[in-house]
Write a protein that binds this DNA or RNA. Structure first.
Lengths: 250, 250
DNA sequence: GACGTTTAATTGTCTGACAAATGAAAATTG
DNA sequence: CAATTTTCATTTGTCAGACAATTAAACGTC
């Protein structure tokens, strides 16, 4: 791979791209050891700090791992679903907060995706998944629970629902949509009546999954989507009204 | 934010995390200028190369951008959906290839997600989306098209279908599932008869969306999912049989 | 053969330096 | 005075060389 020192782009970015392309193309298989930093510096005709900056870029994407010592070095990392979750959730969260995505849009996406895996979950849910969902539902019924804890439990419930589909690709893609919404959900103060309604729907969802009833599960998710959206609409309407109260913003 | 020099973790990783946390928490708003590298080095009591490695990690995640010159520096980047697409697709692709996800699993996830946005697409599709889908369908009918080009056009078609839902969150989440499957699809050699079948379904999907018929669209997507999976199953069955032919692998 | 010691390789970090870019201030010119 | 050019300070990009920390293998000792 060639490096162009006269390019507008950082050398470290070019080197990172060259190595990344090798990993994607399969030229550098998993667990393959990259040349040492000194050798890379020679090959690309740059200094070691520049090579290191490139390697740090790749490490930030979990594409490589490094190890010190005699047999150490940088190794192509086997990207695991668990490792990728974190990044995916972080990115999704920032996308929502930085692009002022409406609660409605986020909500719509989230439940559309969740409904997509409901039939699979109804078919494949294990006793474990059901137990998790019921435990979280039970926690959500506790009176002393803070709104944040309630939302966290809500995420755990829906995470279990998604995982029940038994498809890691689905779980990964949905993790972003479901977990990234938590900050938005946290802004909603749930009254006792709100919580009771949600807990009831959660209970029914668990029951529907128990008997492998995909249709009812889907209907309940629709119900939950509508209810969540109506709650959010009310909260954010007053929120925005209060915010634009003192400003000249149209 | 505190840095622990005695930790097992790289200083640059700790510093990157500290800054990243600030961005996520909103302490560092979009377009905010970070202190210069020299100032950061002072604040964290490390050297400039260490600070730079931390900044490169953040740059790799598109969390900051840097600019040279008198008024330059590192700025908190507004993460855009378009910027995040690339990373998401790359990560998804690597997840599939490195974890030997079966064609069946990937296919199931992809069509489950795509069906999720079909009702929204049927409701909101614009003339533009329809035109793109029909143009790609037309391209797919060209006899001289390579398998790679056929698959690329297929991705473009489905991308338009997803975008038609008018929900950027949905589009983002699905981009990973749809585009990451392209390398797997490329491994399938499409006969003329295969292509004719797919083109026909694509044509019908466009027609169904034209008249805002969500039900038919969903049915057609199911049909396409079944057909794709059956094609893949046949190809990868012979593929695996050939591969385990000469090895002792059980 | 088992067990400590040395050694070589490699990453992590620091220091100091210079080049390149870039906008702002100062100087020059009409 | 206004417009233009020049100078300059600031900041990132890159380099060179050095030392510390870590680690496994090679070596030596008992």
């Amino acid at each position: 791979m060639k490096i162009d020192p006269s390019s507008k782009i950082d050398l470290s970015a070019q080197i990172a791209k060259a190595i990344r392309d090798g990993i994607i193309a399969g030229t550098l298989p998993v667990d393959e050891r990259l040349p040492s930093e000194a050798e890379l510096a020679d090959q690309f005709a740059v200094s070691r700090p520049t090579v290191r900056e490139a390697l740090k870029r790749l490490a930030a994407q979990s594409l490589i791992r490094t190890q010190r010592g005699a047999t150490g070095g940088a190794f192509v990392n086997r990207l695991r679903f668990e490792d990728a979750y974190g990044q995916h959730v972080t990115t999704s969260t920032l996308l929502l907060s930085m692009n002022s995505v409406s609660f409605e849009t986020a909500c719509e996406a989230r439940f559309a995706l969740e409904r997509a895996c409901a039939p699979l979950s109804a078919k494949r849910r294990t006793a474990d998944h059901l137990a998790t969902m019921r435990a979280e539902t039970h926690r959500q019924a506790q009176p002393g629970l803070s709104d944040e804890a309630f939302c966290a439990s809500d995420v755990a419930f829906h995470r279990a629902l998604v995982d029940a589909a038994g498809n890691p690709v689905l779980s990964y893609q949905l993790a972003g949509a479901v977990e990234a919404m938590q900050p938005l959900m946290n802004m909603i103060t749930f009254t006792a009546r709100n919580r009771a309604t949600i807990v009831e729907i959660h209970t029914e969802i668990a029951n529907a999954l128990d008997v492998h009833n995909a249709c009812t599960t889907d209907a309940l998710l629709c119900q939950l989507a509508d209810y969540t959206e109506s709650l959010g609409k009310r909260v954010f309407a007053t929120h925005n009204a209060a915010k634009s109260d003192g400003s000249a913003e149209a």
